[in-house]
Write a protein that binds this DNA or RNA. Structure first.
Lengths: 218, 218
DNA sequence: GAAAATATTTAGGGAATCCAAATTTTATTT
DNA sequence: AAATAAAATTTGGATTCCCTAAATATTTTC
């Protein structure tokens, strides 16, 4: 079956909207994720339903079918493999990869996908710590929690960022925080919940509560 | 300026049509290259003219402007770099790369283009022996002639194929002919102009006149 | 230079997406 | 349950390409 780029983007949006909140998504949320007008969503959802990529029900919203899930996961695999490629081999920073990967994820070639995976050693996580589905659609699980919930004195490792926007990632770069770095929470400020942390066993720095919610550790 | 994928394909078609025959191309030929209806071409040529990517004149046809040429050459650079990448790093054969490169050539990212070039060592020729324009749009020149015109007894080297279709390339694979192989023409059959050649100093084989016109040597 | 052949343009449509505004449906409050 | 708020849908356009068929131009041939 042919799935257009636009359709792939809808599937991705539905996937990411339903991945945490088990259940269904409404038009509104999909429109937001794709930054398009809710009016445009109805037509497409109906079409995806006809193609059996989602099941759609006006009252409860949309949900991926088995086949739709498979297609969505494949696009995500492509996206994350390309991000890995860009960072590991083409000197991109983690703040630069998203835009380009959004384009590369739509290239259609099973051989390309396969070979790219092999070339990279079929990694399990991308440069942001997001899990990369394998060729069968199985998604590695990373048990992690947000830095904001770590007890004082506990030594943890940064394994993922929960916000892939360039502005947040550049902020982390500026603070010198990267995946695999170790962090120990030294203090929590009562009034604003900001943290004083020790980074990589040497530097001490303050992180806002917002930042601490977007840094995932293990 | 934003140039759509369709527009890029038109520019490429015009480039390849005018590259040998200095001058202008008509709608007919462009339509053929893009396998679309000639009637569809008019509108687009007018649009490209408005965007100053071509100069268009109903009687004489289309010709790339300086800016249009630059855009076309950039797409070709991307196409050929990707082909090189696929063959050198992802185990693609020269018969398999074209289709995928047709997609990859439209990815928009100057950094990607640059870094890909560096990653590959900024090669001058792609897996088919076609010249890869450099970052400034300069196209390496390869002096070569068709095998059919080589004198008997002369030792030459295969440097390019003049037909990138999978069927021809697979035929060459079957015959064991690849770029950089040495060839000596032993005999020319009078009645059909087919050649008896010595390949890589060992094998002797017959090549049809058609094949000999599509193998470029130096 | 007129007829024939070839190339281009026009006219009328269609498919895929998108939007804004109006309307309808559903959910929430009182 | 009626009123209000929120969400989804419909309507009427727009855009970008592409198509077919018919009308025009242009070029070639006799």
């Amino acid at each position: 079956m042919i799935i257009s780029i636009t359709e792939e983007n809808y599937l991705k949006a539905i996937f990411s909207a339903t991945t945490h909140t088990t259940g269904r998504v409404g038009n509104q949320l999909i429109a937001e994720k794709l930054t398009i007008n809710p009016a445009s969503v109805t037509e497409m959802l109906r079409k995806l339903d006809e193609k059996k990529l989602i099941s759609y029900d006006r009252t409860n919203g949309a949900k991926l079918t088995k086949e739709g899930l498979k297609a969505a996961v494949k696009v995500i695999r492509k996206h994350r493999l390309w991000e890995t490629f860009l960072v590991e081999h083409l000197n991109f920073t983690w703040a630069e990869v998203h835009e380009v990967a959004e384009q590369l994820e739509h290239i259609q070639s099973d051989k390309l996908l396969n070979e790219l995976g092999n070339f990279l050693g079929n990694p399990n996580f991308d440069p942001h710590g997001d899990p990369i589905p394998d060729g069968n659609g199985k998604i590695p699980i990373l048990k992690s929690k947000i830095l904001a919930e770590v007890e004082i004195g506990r030594k943890v490792k940064v394994v993922k960022v929960a916000d892939n926007t360039a502005s947040f990632l550049k902020y982390l770069d500026k603070q010198g925080i990267a995946l695999t770095d170790t962090i120990i929470v030294k203090e929590v400020q009562d009034f604003d919940k900001s943290l004083l942390v020790e980074l990589k066993g040497k530097i001490e720095l303050y992180l806002s509560a917002e930042a601490a919610k977007k840094i995932m550790v293990e």
